[in-house]
Computed example of a mutant assay.
Amino acid sequence: MEAYVTLTIEDNVGFVEFFHPNRNSMPSDVLLKLEQTIIEAGNNDSAKVIVLKSGGDRTFCAGASFNEVIEIDNETSGKQFFLGFANVVNAMRKCPKLIIGRVQGKTVGGGVGLAAATDYCLATQYASIRLSELSIGIGPFVIEPAVSRKIGVAAMSQMTIDAETFFTSAFAKEKGLYAEVFETTKGLDEAVNELAKKLASYNPEALNEMKKVFWKGTENWDDLLEERAEISGKLVLSKFTKDTLKRFR
């Protein structure tokens, strides 16, 4: 199957779905399309609330595409790649609609950032999380503001330092990343659909105003995440990172 990003609107709910055959990893073209689709959904009057989901039954998102990252050969292209994640996070926080996250399986690196940038996130028991960036020679710089804002600096630091460990969905719920955890994907989907339909029936003006309240204090993120993308863009050129990524290619 080929990578895709789609927007489907049903009963005033906009379902934004992304997919990549390599465990839903995120190359730059998918990131760009995801950013554009979130903006499109936010501007579509037929969608009163948005659900962010990924295709497939297993991994929610494997983070950055290692195959693309290993080809980066200068700071400009490095910064540009990581700006892809920054732009998606910023599109989510500036979207006028509430975004519900639907996390069906494991999520790594930038995928954790996507979950953290939703306004309300539901998951299955299999949705463990890992911030593996330090182990490959970079760091979760771009997504850190979103993750720290959701689970706190202490939990963010723990995950960042223990970079080779998958933390359980129970940990993610305890720290506030997930609002609820379900035993099955069926149970997850039922809960997501019920919540989305309920929110879509509420006053859209009230939802929009609450979204502004939820994200108060993040007005500097356009600049902040660009600065973080520049840091990652430099570090990805290191010999350590290049050698490490070759093992995963």
Rank of each mutant, 00 (worst) to 15 (best):
Q36V: 07
L34I: 06
A64S: 05
M1I: 07
V88S: 06
S132F: 15
E180M: 02
T244I: 07
N67G: 15
L134V: 13
T59I: 12
E219L: 10
E68L: 02
G110F: 03
F240G: 11
N74F: 03
G176P: 04
D57A: 09
Y178I: 04
F19L: 01
V16G: 01
A41T: 10
I72A: 01
T168Q: 04
K150Y: 11
E190W: 10
E75R: 12
E209R: 13
G139E: 04
K239N: 14
A206N: 14
V69Q: 03
D223V: 14
L131W: 05
V147E: 03
L52P: 04
F240T: 14
K212F: 05
I70R: 12
I100G: 02
I50V: 00
F15A: 05
G152K: 11
S157R: 15
A123G: 11
K212Y: 11
G55W: 06
L98P: 01
T185W: 07
A172L: 00
N208Y: 15
V16A: 01
V147R: 11
G187N: 12
K150N: 06
G84I: 08
K94S: 00
V108D: 14
V103K: 00
R149V: 07
L207F: 04
I231G: 00
E71I: 13
E164A: 15
T160M: 03
V108L: 14
V236S: 13
V108C: 14
C95N: 05
T185N: 14
T241P: 03
E219H: 08
M210A: 13
G56V: 03
V236T: 09
G105E: 08
Q36H: 01
L237K: 10
A116E: 08
Y178D: 11
N74C: 00
L131P: 09
V236I: 15
E226G: 04
I99P: 02
L199V: 02
R93P: 07
T244M: 08
L225I: 10
T37Q: 09
E35I: 14
L207Q: 03
K175C: 07
G14M: 01
G42A: 08
V30W: 00
P27K: 04
T37R: 00
P21D: 02
V30E: 03
V112R: 07
F85P: 11
N90F: 01
A86G: 09
N90G: 05
A91V: 00
A229P: 00
E226A: 12
L134P: 06
A3S: 13
